[in-house]
Design a protein around this nucleic acid. Sequence first.
DNA 1: CTACCGATATTCT
DNA 2: GAATATCGGTAGA
Length: 199
Amino acid sequence: MSGRPLARRFYARDSRQLAPLLLNKVLVRGTGPDRVEARIVEVEAYAGADDPGSHAFRGPTPRNETMFGPPGHLYVYFTYGMHWCANVVCGQAGTASAVLLRAGSPLVGVDLIRQRRGHRTDRELCAGPARLTQALGITGIDDGTDLVRGTIRILDDGVPPPSRPGRSARIGLREGRGDQHPWRWFVRNDPNLSRTRHP
DNA sequence: CTACCGATATTCT
DNA sequence: GAATATCGGTAGA
């Protein structure tokens, strides 16, 4: 697999505009034998001060500092005491706009993904935000990575986003969910979507 | 297949 | 103390 890396200006739009455009793009980490690729099939948009579901809602902290930086970098955070989740920082610097990568379809390095994921069924390999980071080997040391120049990149390999993507409320939130914030987009009928549990 | 529950570090009240 | 942008194991239908 190969493709053209997304340019900085591609990331410089609002998270709700960028999120559906990231569907069917290819997330890449590593080179050579440890190269892993997955096609993005599910995302969620997060905003800044006006979004009660966002980590940036109460302003900058050590954890969310990357969200307030320039677009085209990776915001990686640790949650539930054991899981890493990855976001694409977008918009203008200071707006804290970001897109959470929630699920992918494995393309390259599937054997390595199976090792990292404990030899689960194929559809469980990248079906969830923490599963996706584990499959690609993304952890806190990747927080702040420049997606345009770094070892983690997002490629356009010519597959366009869906013309009519699935859309729903965001998952796993107490605040900022519901019909007022239908900011989850996904590739309809893809077998690698995350499980949708609504607490 | 769905439902529940424990794990467990950081952030927030 | 409580909550958290989650997951994997187990129990049951």
